[in-house]
Design a protein around this nucleic acid. Structure first.
Lengths: 136, 136
DNA sequence: GCAGATAGTTGTAGCTCTACAAGCATTGCT
DNA sequence: AGCAATGCTTGTAGAGCTACAACTATCTGC
């Protein structure tokens, strides 16, 4: 049991004890995967295939998700001009708005984390930022 | 967007991108909640009610989970002598063994975390350990 | 001792997601 | 042009979980 494992335990526990998925789903009347789809789409349109990869859902289920979001006016489907088999999925204004509000909810850190001393938080951020591909 | 929020984003992403729930469930032929039940029980027997609280499942579903685990010989139910309404759930040897192996799987940190420099990991652990109730 | 609360169980219905098979339209390869 | 591969859709079946109602057995407070 090394330092990475001990840290990982704490981290895992922190996230799992602070699961907001149900809260988010309830807040917007959408299942969590649907909200996640919108959150992935705000950074730019994706084809069904790309969206499926990011959601880790299979193509048939991705179709259902997008069908539902489309009926609610949160996304729009259009044919990819470069490959007419593919569909490009874009968020609407309403969809982007919902995604942003969901992200805000999810971004609220657990109280324990928020209450760490400022310098500890600074150190934490410095170390953690190495984990993230630079510029994301 | 403060330091806590930025750190939280990275942490959340780290855990969600490293979801081993399906891997664990597949590895043992048990749904993830069932494995979680065993993992909760290795620290000592619990009543149904206590177990339900730790799993965040309602009483009826908890009964199903324990029924299943009992049939597989992974837990045993006995009447609480101090309150004969209550049942005390205990892991068997086989159950404890499975729980330990599952924990080992879950404890493997994501590669990115494991590959941090040793001194960064030390700092990380120091800061994070403040998040955990001392002595757990 | 009785009324109400509590612990657990049984049963049912439904939602979300997974997994797979089969089909159509379009594209890329030869 | 013909054929395999690709992108998406439709349909179906089922696992896993949630939520609720109703019941029995036991306990607690008065």
């Amino acid at each position: 049991m090394d330092a990475a494992q001990r840290s990982w335990r704490i981290i895992r526990e922190l996230v799992l004890d602070h699961d907001r998925r149900k809260a988010v789903a309830d807040a917007f009347g959408l299942s969590f995967v649907r909200v996640k789809a919108l959150r992935r789409l705000v950074d730019g349109p994706l084809t069904m295939r790309e969206l499926a990869a990011r959601l880790a859902t299979d193509p048939p289920y991705t179709t259902l998700i997008v069908d539902d979001l489309e009926q609610r006016g949160l996304v729009a489907r259009s044919v990819d001009p470069r490959d007419r088999r593919a569909k490009i999925v874009t968020v609407t204004e309403a969809g982007a708005d919902l995604a942003r509000r969901a992200e805000q909810l999810l971004d609220v850190p657990p109280a324990a984390l928020r209450e760490l001393p400022a310098d500890d938080l600074a150190v934490l951020e410095r170390v953690l930022s190495a984990l993230r591909p630079p510029g994301s």
